[in-house]
Amino acid sequence: MTDSKKIELDILGQVCPACLLVVLREMNTHQRELKNGEARLVIRTDHRDTTRTIPESARKMGYDVEVRNLETCYEITIGKK
């Protein structure tokens, strides 16, 4: 997923259900690029619950998801391998 175009989304400080909805909207906007692997969506969040809901929903929609623990937040990458 590393060589594709990076779409960044910063939702630090936002809580549910906004997090999931904002990410879903972003995924729908870039649906074509994400599906054919041209781009990947990189989300930064500090809302713990989001590390459960976003990966699950994205996988259900057929994407590959990676989650990394950064120092004070989490980074979720959605795309196609």
């Binding site: 713990r48 619950d49 459960r52 699950e56 623990n69 989490y74």
Partner: peptide
């Protein structure tokens, strides 16, 4: 069980 990545979940 759920898959979650939060620290100490």
């Amino acid at each position: 069980n759920v898959t979650a990545f939060a620290k100490g979940y």
